[in-house]
Structures are given as structure tokens and as C-alpha cells.
């Protein structure tokens, strides 16, 4: 019996090894941001349903993780497209070039807003970016000097805010949303202060971009559902999530106004809501032609029925870019224009 089992196992493994060598990848592989994931998967599914190509496989690895995989080389073992909720950085681009990924096409998908939410049953927050900075930065200016953040309650930051302890659930550093929070909330609010402006670049960066580690800021590395669950069980806690997630769960959570502006499709698209950012994906040009369907996938994504103002991605919470920009981006995607840093 043992001999038979062993023989069967050996044959199976050998058979698998042989087919493995013979089979080339015939479906697109996409990695990257969890913020772009809902849109990317929706396009992938539509693309697969059309029936000409296999449905692309989409992994949600976070923007940083996606860039690492995407830039690690050329060939069918490496992904073809990576989604990003921020622009590719210079060092990531360098890494790509070093590993032979020389042609990259950049596509701006649309916009997303970052919202500060709490449970419907909790107090309604009206926040400013400055207040969020004061509540969540590791070090703030007290009497002109950088000291460890002394604020314990929201009304320590500003008397107009509720008398509740500061507790913010936010995405961990592997999320593009976290980078965007630093870039759009912490940095601008922090660098407005003259005492900070006087510092040299490195100290300034450290002072402005580090979040609290004393328990007032809690990092959640999983997904927005986990943040939402923590928020609903603790009505005074604030969560940092993306607008598309809020849009789907507006009966359980409410968003704070930021600098007096309410987050909505319109206010994010026209830029009046202050904490919004573009979303991207990056295409490895060397894989076009090698992996079937990449051009067609780009065409599906950049068609108005997908990413237009009334396209199916709008139903998933994507905020469409203005018409002119969409047109330009679609043309660029079609021509597979090289991006430059």
C-alpha cells in the first residue's frame, strides 16, 4: 500500500513538474493598493466576462508591497500592473530600472478622499487639518518648543471639540492611505508653523511625519472593515479611511467635516475637499505582447462606461477625474506612453 501511494505521489509530482515547464502564463497579474483594489477587481471581472481573455488575478498587497513586486523584474513570474494610491517614488522607480523594468506607463485612475469617521451614535466632529495634526503627531510645538504630544482629550486640542479622549484608528505604514494622510494632513499643517520652517530638512521631516506612539493613534494593518468595527464599538473613537468605503457604509459611520468642507463626490472631484488624492496604476510595457490582454484591459479600464462619471466604477465609489484629464489619460494608456520621473 505504501509503495503504491509513493508511486502515485511521485508520478503526480513529476506530471505537475512537466506541465509546469510547458505552461506559460496566459492571464494578467495585478498587485498593489488596497484602495484601488475594489476598482481594479471590478474592471478585471468585466474584462473576464467579455470572454476573450481569462479574468486577471488581482492581489491586494498595499501600494508599497505592490511596487516591490512590480519592480523586482521582467518575466512571467512578475506582475504586469501595480495599483497605487500615491505616485511612484523616485527610489521605487530607481529600483525598477535597476531590475530591468525600463518602460512604465502611468495612468491616473480618478480621485479618492480620505475621511475621518466615527460611529453614527457618537458625537459629530468638525475637524480641521491642524487639529488632526495636533491630535496625532508624535511631537508638537508647546510654547515654541517641540515636545512629546501632551494632548489627551479632543478639547485639549481645541475647546470647541468634544471632551472625549483622543483615540484614532488609522492605516499602518504599508497603506498608501497612510502616506497620503502624512502628506495631505500632517505635513501641510505642521510646516505652516514658523518654528518648524526654521528647522533643517531632516529634523523637519521627522518632526512632521511621525505619528504618536503613546496609544492615541492605533495602527490597523488589515483593512477598513476592521477600522469600521473598532469605530462602531467605540463611538468616541475616530477612524481614518477612504471615501469609497464610507460611501458604502453610510448607515453605520459618519464623516467629520474637514476645514468646514463635507466629503462628497463633487467636493472631492473639484478639489474643494482638502484631503483628496489621485489614484494610479502602473503598467509594465515590456509585458505587453508577452502576456495576452494587457492592452485590452487598459481599454476596458479607461472606457467611459468604467471610469466615467456614470460608469460602473462610480458605483463602487470611484471619483472620476475631469473629462479632459480622462481623455488625456486614456490616450496615454492607449499609446503606452513612457513615464518620466
Amino acid at each position: 500500500m505504501i509503495r503504491k501511494t509513493l508511486a502515485v505521489a511521485a508520478v503526480a509530482v513529476a506530471a505537475i513538474a512537466v506541465t509546469d515547464a510547458a505552461q506559460a502564463r496566459d492571464q494578467i497579474r495585478i498587485v498593489g493598493s488596497s484602495t484601488v483594489y475594489p476598482f481594479s477587481t471590478a474592471v478585471a471581472e468585466q474584462f473576464g466576462k467579455a470572454g476573450k481573455f481569462k479574468t486577471p488575478v488581482v492581489e491586494s498587497t498595499g501600494t508599497g508591497g505592490g511596487m516591490r513586486l512590480f519592480c523586482s523584474g521582467v518575466g512571467e513570474n512578475f506582475p504586469d500592473i501595480t495599483n497605487a494610491s500615491r505616485r511612484i517614488t523616485a527610489s521605487e522607480f530607481e529600483n525598477c530600472t535597476k531590475n530591468g523594468v525600463t518602460g512604465i506607463t502611468e495612468v491616473v485612475v480618478g480621485f479618492d478622499g480620505i475621511v475621518f469617521i466615527n460611529a453614527k451614535s457618537g458625537p459629530k466632529f468638525a475637524l480641521t487639518r491642524e487639529q488632526m495634526y495636533k491630535a496625532t503627531a508624535k511631537e508638537v510645538l508647546v510654547g515654541g518648543k517641540l515636545t512629546a504630544n501632551p494632548y489627551k482629550l479632543w478639547n485639549d486640542v481645541d475647546p470647541a471639540l468634544p471632551k472625549e479622549p483622543i483615540l484614532v484608528y488609522g492605516p499602518a505604514p504599508n497603506h498608501g492611505t497612510r502616506d497620503a494622510y502624512v502628506e495631505l494632513v500632517l505635513d501641510p499643517a505642521c510646516e505652516k508653523q514658523p518654528e518648524i520652517k526654521a528647522l533643517d530638512k531632516d529634523t523637519r521631516k521627522k518632526a512632521c511625519q511621525t505619528v504618536r506612539e503613546d496609544g492615541a493613534w492605533v495602527e490597523v494593518s488589515e483593512n477598513y472593515t476592521v477600522i469600521q468595527q473598532k469605530i462602531t464599538s467605540n463611538p468616541a473613537a475616530v477612524g481614518v479611511i477612504t471615501f469609497s468605503y464610507l460611501d458604502q457604509n453610510a448607515d453605520k459611520i459618519q464623516a467629520a467635516t474637514v476645514d468646514g468642507k463635507t466629503a462628497s463626490f463633487d467636493s472631492i472631484a473639484n478639489g474643494s475637499y482638502p484631503v483628496s488624492r489621485p489614484l494610479f496604476f502602473y503598467v509594465k510595457k515590456q509585458h505587453v505582447g508577452m502576456i495576452p490582454g494587457i492592452k485590452e484591459y487598459l481599454a476596458e479600464f479607461t472606457a467611459d462606461k468604467a471610469w466615467g462619471k456614470e460608469g460602473y466604477l462610480a458605483d463602487k465609489g470611484l471619483i472620476a477625474s475631469p473629462d479632459a484629464q480622462r481623455k488625456e489619460q486614456a490616450a496615454n494608456a492607449k499609446a503606452l506612453g513612457d513615464m518620466k520621473m
Binding site: I16, T19, D20, Q23, Q27, S34, Y37, P38, T41, A44, E45, G48, K54, T55, V57, V58, E59, S60, E222, N223, Y224, T225, S244, Y245, D247, Q248, N249, G317
Partner: peptide, 29 residues
């Protein structure tokens, strides 16, 4: 842990497994 629509036909096709499917749905908005 990926979004995979096509039903796998062999052990070489990309595929999710049950607990992964649960994890992915739990994170969907």
C-alpha cells in the same frame, strides 16, 4: 490571497481557498 474569478481547472491555475475567500469578503466594503 487574491481576487480570482475563474474556477481553477488544475492545481496550476491561480486559485483562492476557503479561508482566503472569507478573509477577502470580510474586507469588502
Amino acid at each position: 490571497v487574491a481576487f480570482i474569478v475563474d474556477i481553477p481547472k488544475s492545481p496550476l491555475d491561480p486559485s483562492a481557498v476557503l479561508p482566503v475567500q472569507i478573509y477577502l469578503w470580510a474586507g469588502s466594503p
